[in-house]
Design a protein around this nucleic acid. Structure first.
Lengths: 235, 235
DNA sequence: CATCATTTGTTCGTATGTATA
DNA sequence: ATATACATACGAACAAATGAT
């Protein structure tokens, strides 16, 4: 049935450990049973247990320390979105301010990016990202009208809208980002409190839903000193 | 003297294997001696040899396949460990111009990034990237002196030095990039043919060798309209 | 095409070292 | 200081895939 009989023992053990973690039997930060306990429980050799644990420690699921019990990692980077890419806003106290939120009858480029038909409306939200009472980014976000109606209810609360969208059963699969740089326009400069022409990090993002249709196209311009865009390749 | 006596046996073995690769005793793509040969050669158990090899295999330095000899990896994962990152210079005809190449006696920040000792010298190369006879990027690259001596021989031929370094048996594992934006200084503006203050894409890169020691730290500033930095997350 | 020696993969058992609580 | 935990290291045996004869 499960066909697991043909998998190596240590892989079977590994699967069982992962299952226990996913089902919350062992909570993050908690210690899992010791090697000798697992040996008894599963009736296998120490080698087998260790290989399973080592693999998971390698994948940052478990954390081992000589002399101390093996624990489930706190931040289970279940690599669902961050394969080495880190966006990081600098600051301690964050806020959002909605500048504009309305339906657009005509916006060729946004419609194109969202792959909408001619007659479909686009919803535009312009927002300011604020950290420690200082504006650090300006965002223009375009979404299809049906999504816009939902987004507008919380666009003033959370800058990252996708966790909230998830609560409304709108999930995303792929995110594509084009990182560039641009000089602040007079409008942007006024908003961000810098001189016109100042360099901004320019992030153009397209987010795809589960059906691979775009659900968001946005351009965000960050003050360089308040945003880290870090990429790690390899390992 | 080397203090290696206190390191675990398998780590010592690992270091010896890495040394053999770095010195070109075993070329990329080539098979290393079998486990039983290594057992005889180093007079340790199979467990020890296997742990060393497994560590390196998992770091993508070696490649193991059941039944077949273990080999040194060819190109350290051009796309495999890569979560969809595309750097793309726009243009058809590319060239490089070396502006400066010399040993620096003192450069605190570069030394820190390269994790060098106080007394170790740093080699600096300043280059201009040219596309279709137009300068599109300015790069300041810092490398440890031993590597600098090799890089200098081809730094005027290839902008991407790592394939060339590979031919000299200097391989890399991890690349970390921090993408930001900055305003062109007077000097950069003159080099790139723009006005001072113009926005540039600023890429700060640290490259690690197979022994996880940094082998390059560089800052490259691109004209935004001639460089795409694209990231794809998910799937 | 089948055979077979070689090579890596899996699993057991055992012993000792070393950090933690 | 002691018991417990993980880390290192040895040896042995069989399984499974490979590559050459």
């Amino acid at each position: 049935m499960t066909k697991q009989r043909k998998l190596p023992l240590y892989v079977q053990i590994k699967n069982k450990l992962v299952t226990n973690i996913k089902e919350g039997v062992w909570q993050p930060g908690e210690a899992i049973p010791s090697e000798s306990q697992l040996i008894e429980q599963y009736n296998v050799s120490r080698t087998t247990i260790r290989q399973a644990i080592q693999d998971l420690a390698q994948k940052n699921v478990l954390e081992t320390r000589r002399g101390a019990p093996t624990r489930v990692r706190n931040e289970p980077q279940i690599e669902l979105g961050n394969p080495g890419i880190i966006h990081h806003e600098l600051g301690t106290d964050f806020d959002v301010k909605v500048l504009r939120a309305e339906t657009l009858k005509e916006h060729y480029y946004a419609s194109y990016q969202l792959q909408l038909e001619e007659n479909e409306d686009v919803y535009l939200i312009e927002r300011l990202r604020i950290a420690d009472n200082k504006p650090i980014a300006f965002q223009r976000m375009f979404v299809p009208l049906p999504i816009g109606e939902k987004v507008t209810t919380f666009s003033a609360e959370a800058f990252d809208i996708f966790p909230k969208l998830g609560e409304h059963n709108i999930h995303h699969t792929n995110i594509r980002e084009l990182v560039s740089a641009s000089n602040a326009t007079q409008y942007e400069a006024d908003l961000l409190g810098i001189i016109p022409g100042g360099a901004l990090i320019d992030i153009e993002r397209t987010t795809l839903g589960i059906d691979s249709q775009p659900i968001e196209y946005s351009r965000t311009r960050y003050l360089p000193e308040f945003f880290h865009y870090r990429v790690e390749i390899g390992k």
